[in-house]
Computed example of a mutant assay.
Amino acid sequence: MIVASLSRRDLLRLPEARELYRAGLKIVSCYQFGKGETADWLPGASAGVEHAKRGWQLHTAAGGPIGAPVYASIDDDPSYAQYRAQVAPYLRGWESVIGRVAHPAAHLHQVEIDARSVGGVDVNHVLKPQFGQWD
Rank of each mutant, 00 (worst) to 15 (best):
G36W: 09
V126D: 00
R9S: 09
D135K: 13
R54I: 05
A52W: 00
G55L: 01
E16V: 04
S79Q: 03
D75E: 15
E37A: 14
I66M: 13
S79G: 11
V3N: 05
H51E: 06
Q82C: 01
V121G: 03
P43W: 04
S79L: 07
V87M: 10
G119H: 09
D76S: 14
P15E: 00
G93D: 06
K128N: 11
G93F: 05
G36C: 11
A88S: 13
A72V: 08
L20S: 00
L20M: 03
V126K: 03
A4N: 00
A52S: 01
G99T: 03
V101W: 07
Q82D: 12
F33G: 01
G63Q: 05
M1V: 02
P104M: 10
N124D: 08
H125Y: 10
L20P: 00
L20Y: 06
Q133E: 14
G44Q: 07
L6S: 04
W134G: 07
I98P: 00
G99M: 03
P69W: 10
A85C: 05
M1D: 03
L25I: 04
L91Q: 03
S73C: 13
N124R: 12
V126N: 04
I2P: 02
Y21L: 13
V49K: 06
V28Q: 06
G93K: 04
L108D: 12
A88F: 15
G24C: 09
W56E: 10
V97D: 05
Y90W: 11
S5R: 06
S46G: 05
A106F: 10
R116G: 07
L91I: 14
A68S: 14
V123F: 07
D75R: 11
Y71M: 11
D135R: 14
G132L: 12
M1I: 01
S46D: 13
L58C: 03
S29H: 02
Q133F: 09
K35N: 14
W56Y: 12
E37S: 10
G48W: 01
F33S: 14
E95G: 09
G55I: 02
A52V: 01
V126I: 12
G119F: 07
V97R: 05
D40Q: 09
G48R: 06
A115Q: 15
W56C: 02
A106I: 12
V118I: 15
L14A: 03
Q32V: 15
S29D: 06
A52M: 02
A72K: 03
I113V: 15
L14N: 00
L14Y: 07
L11V: 07
R8I: 10
P104E: 12
H109Y: 15
P15D: 00
A105L: 15
R54L: 08
P129R: 01
G34L: 09
A106G: 10
R54W: 01
A85D: 13
V49S: 00
L25G: 00
E16L: 04
H51A: 02
H51M: 06
R8F: 11
V3A: 06
G55M: 08
D10C: 01
P78I: 09
G67A: 13
A85K: 13
D76E: 09
G55V: 03
Q86L: 11
T38Q: 04
V3F: 03
A62F: 04
V97T: 11
R13Y: 01
Q133R: 12
A39D: 13
Y90H: 07
S117I: 08
I27S: 09
L91D: 02
E112F: 14
H59L: 01
S7F: 11
